[in-house]
């Protein structure tokens, strides 16, 4: 057999490598450009008042987004309070109780499908069950919407992590006569602790930047939060409302709020990675 000549193949190889390297740098360049732009424009909006004051009408100085920061914090925390325990239980059920059963497979499948359902649909759903019947947009509805988005994410990561816990650990605990719920909560959860914390943190980071579901549920408000039964201020809807407004100072505030959200999300993500790395 005549060996094929090496030259054209090497040239093609070189061209492909070049294209792929250039595209990689182009893609990363654009993404870094976005972060840079948000950082520069956002930093210009930061001031003491930005973190401590209520939003000001356009044209007035010294406005802030303090109420929205508090609102996002409370809504996200409430969502985590509902979504995390339920998500953990779903994960436990799938791995510990229903492994290889038909219903377990079905729920596993639906959890994955649910992760991919657009968040705006969840917002619509919560609107029809919590906002329309009461005739009132509310922070509670916002928290429920975010909890529904979190639930499958937490369930999926819990399931992945519990699968990694070796069976010998379960068996030795059972052999000592420990009841199953104690084995799960005291032994398996302890073994999987860092993984579970990482999963929960990533889920929280994910919902804290959500806008679309809050648009139909928590809405927004220019006031301090008195009760969650009324429209509740939050950063993401504030960004949306202010960015599309015609006022330059409101747009600047929107950049500031964007930077704040971006820093928070990146911080939690990096924290989650560090926790996971320390363990392994």
């Amino acid at each position: 057999m005549k060996p094929r000549s090496k030259k054209p193949r090497e040239i093609i190889d070189f061209i492909v490598k070049l294209i792929s390297a250039v595209s990689a740098f182009f893609g990363i360049f654009i993404l870094i450009l976005i972060i840079y732009e948000v950082a520069v424009r956002g930093l210009a909006a930061f001031s003491f008042a930005f973190f401590t004051q209520l939003p000001a009408p356009p044209g007035m100085d010294k406005g802030g987004v303090a109420n929205a920061i508090v609102g996002t914090f409370i809504i996200t925390l409430m969502a985590a309070g509902m979504g995390v325990p339920i998500g953990l239980m779903v994960g436990i059920y799938l791995v510990e109780f229903a492994r290889d059963t038909k219903i377990g497979e079905l729920i596993k499948f639906l959890t994955n499908v649910m992760i991919g359902i657009p968040s705006i649909i969840v917002g619509l759903f919560v609107y029809t069950i919590m906002v329309k019947p009461f005739g009132q947009f509310s922070g509670y509805a916002g928290a429920v919407a975010l909890a529904i988005i979190m639930l499958p994410v937490v369930a999926r990561t819990t399931q992945d992590i519990l699968m990694l816990v070796p069976n010998s650990l379960r068996e030795s605990a059972f052999a000592l006569g420990t009841s199953q719920w104690r084995v799960i909560l005291n032994i398996i959860f302890r073994a999987a602790k860092s993984g579970l914390i990482t999963g929960v943190l990533l889920a929280i980071a994910r919902v804290s930047g959500e806008t679309a579901p809050l648009l139909f549920t928590a809405l927004n408000s220019p006031y301090w939060i008195q009760t969650l039964a009324r429209p509740t201020a939050n950063l993401t809807v504030l960004i949306y409302n202010y960015a599309v407004s015609p006022f330059a100072d409101w747009q600047q505030t929107a950049w500031g709020a964007s930077l704040l959200i971006m820093i928070a999300v990146l911080f939690v993500n990096i924290l989650a990675r560090v926790i996971l790395k320390q363990k392994s």
Binding site: A24, I28, L31, I32, I34, I35, E37, V38, R41, L202, A205, R206, S208, G209, E210, T211, T236, I239, Y240, A243, V244, Q251, A254, W255, S258, I261, M262, V265, L266, N269, I270, R273
Partner: peptide, 24 residues
Amino acid sequence: VVGTCIELLAAIPSIIYGMWGLFV
């Protein structure tokens, strides 16, 4: 390093991309 950066970028909320799209 680059892979981690890209994973972090996947976590950035979509409203940030929207802001950048509109103004930049």
